[in-house]
C-alpha cells in the first residue's frame, strides 16, 4: 500500500511543498513530487526516518561584554531531543573571551554533535564597567521620605 504525505521542505527559503509517496510504514520513499532541487529528496528521506533540525540558542557568559553568546549545533540534531537539549543549555556557563567557532560542548546529549559558538564575546574591559550610581532600590514600596540626600 502506498501512503501519501505532504511536508514542507525547510532546507532553503523556497520552502517547496513536497508530496511523498511512501510504503505503509512511512519509512521508505517511493516517489517524490514538488521538490525543486535534489536536496528536497534528501530532506524527504531523512524526514521519514530520522528528522533533524539545527539547534540554535544561547549560553551564558561570565565576564563578557554581553551576558550571552549565541551557539549552534555543528550539525542537525535529532528533532526530538531539541527541547531537552535547550533545557540543558540553561545550566551551562562559559567564560569570556569566547571566540566564534569555539566548541562550547563536545557532545550534545550523546548525539555525537558539538555545540559551537556562533559569535565572539570579548572580556569586559575595566573602563567599560559603567559608573555605579548610589541609588537604593528596595522593590517599589516606598514607606519613608522619598527625598534623596544630596
Amino acid at each position: 500500500m502506498i501512503v501519501e504525505k505532504e511536508i514542507q521542505c525547510v532546507i532553503c527559503p523556497a520552502g517547496c511543498e513536497l508530496r511523498l509517496f511512501c510504503d505503509a510504514t512511512a519509512a521508505v520513499l517511493h516517489r517524490l513530487e514538488g521538490a525543486a532541487c535534489a536536496k528536497g529528496r534528501e530532506f524527504a528521506e531523512r524526514e521519514l526516518t530520522d528528522p533533524r533540525r539545527t539547534l540554535t540558542s544561547t549560553v551564558k557568559v561570565r565576564g563578557g561584554r554581553f551576558p550571552l553568546v549565541s551557539v549552534r549545533s555543528a550539525a542537525p540534531l535529532p528533532k526530538h531531543i531539541l527541547p531537552a537539549a535547550v533545557a540543558m543549555l540553561g545550566a551551562i556557563w562559559t567564560e569570556a573571551p569566547v571566540a566564534a567557532g569555539q566548541i562550547i560542548l563536545a557532545d550534545i546529549m550523546g548525539a555525537g554533535i558539538a555545540l559551537v559558538a556562533t559569535e565572539a564575546v570579548e572580556r569586559k574591559k575595566n573602563d567599560e564597567i559603567p559608573e555605579k550610581r548610589i541609588v537604593r532600590v528596595t522593590g517599589f514600596l516606598y514607606n519613608s521620605n522619598q527625598r534623596r540626600e544630596t
Binding site: L141, Y142, N143, Q146
Partner: peptide, 12 residues
C-alpha cells in the same frame, strides 16, 4: 513641593 520640604509617598 519636595524641594520645599513636603514629603511624597508613592504607592500609598
Amino acid at each position: 513641593a519636595l524641594a520645599n520640604g513636603a514629603e511624597i509617598w508613592l504607592n500609598f
